[in-house]
Amino acid sequence: MKFLPISFLILALATATAFAYDPSPLQDICVATKDPNSAVFVNGQFCMDPMQATADDFVFMGFRNPGNTANPLGSKVTPATVMEFPGLNTLGISMARLDFAPGGLNPPHTHPRGTELLVVVEGTLLVGFVTSNQLNNTFFSKVLYPGDVFVFPIGLIHFQLNTGKTPALAFSALSSQNPGVITIANSVFGAKPPISADVLTKAFQVDKKVVDYLQAQFWYDNN
């Protein structure tokens, strides 16, 4: 864990100098609350009276313990978005802890509202993203080691795979308080109600039996 202080310093410096994707706040703090009484609705959340805020509203302890990687993907993402960390509301930033078992995968997904900056703390990760049709779906990929940082541009499909023989750990910062996650396989083949097989057979140019098989699978969510 010797790289942990360095990783947080890198993330802090990078996000402090970047422009947030979310609208800039017009007040110092706007801690999200589920109680709409005497509250103001801002950025999709109700904000408590700032005079009632305490230090506890600005601390998140969910990164203290490793995520459970005993699942079909061998990975666990522990998010710290406004949904889990109310003090982030209106601040245009969030984070995540990513734990990987050997061979663990954070499957291809996108963040529709945020760019992601990832730093490896332990282990070895193969990462990559694919550009849009406009840039001919170009694939960029790199093997990362402890201390390495990689950026995934907003909205582009990307992944992380532990290629080492030991567990891996990474942290990411995202340029939105609620960047969202769309896991490609889950969304396409696990949609409820299901997407028409006629659409998917033509889109993927495969036999209907293949589509039926994929739609019948259990698509695990590691978030």
Rank of each mutant, 00 (worst) to 15 (best):
A170W: 08
M48C: 12
F63L: 02
D148M: 13
M51K: 15
P102M: 06
T124Q: 13
G147C: 14
V127R: 02
L169F: 00
F100G: 02
V130E: 07
L91N: 13
G87D: 07
V31N: 09
P153R: 14
M61P: 00
H158M: 03
E116G: 11
E116V: 10
N136F: 09
T78W: 01
G155Y: 06
F159P: 03
P66Y: 09
F85W: 14
K76S: 02
I154W: 07
V31Y: 12
G147F: 13
N68T: 00
V59S: 04
A53M: 08
A101P: 12
V151Y: 00
G164N: 01
F100C: 01
N136Q: 15
M83S: 10
V77R: 14
A80C: 04
P107R: 01
A80F: 03
P66M: 10
G155S: 13
P112F: 02
Q45Y: 10
G128A: 06
G67I: 02
N37E: 13
V77L: 13
V120E: 05
G128F: 11
P107H: 02
A39F: 14
A53I: 03
T110K: 05
T163S: 11
K165Q: 08
S141N: 05
T81P: 00
H158V: 05
D99A: 09
P86L: 12
N106Y: 05
T138L: 13
I93L: 15
F41D: 11
N137T: 01
I29S: 14
T78E: 07
N68I: 06
F139Y: 14
G44W: 13
D56M: 01
L73G: 06
P102G: 00
A168C: 10
V121A: 06
V143K: 02
L88R: 06
F159W: 10
G103R: 14
V31G: 12
N137G: 13
K34T: 12
S132F: 02
F140H: 14
F100T: 02
G164A: 01
D49N: 15
V130N: 07
L118A: 08
V120N: 01
L126K: 15
G74F: 12
V40L: 09
V149T: 15
F60N: 05
D148I: 08
V120F: 01
G164F: 02
S141P: 04
Q52E: 13
F100E: 01
H158W: 06
M83A: 10
T124M: 11
G67R: 06
G44H: 12
C30Q: 09
A170F: 03
S94E: 03
M95A: 14
M51V: 04
P86T: 11
P72S: 09
T131K: 14
P112Y: 01
P153F: 11
V143Q: 04
F150W: 15
T166K: 15
M61H: 07
P108L: 07
V121H: 01
R64L: 03
E84M: 09
G147R: 15
F60K: 09
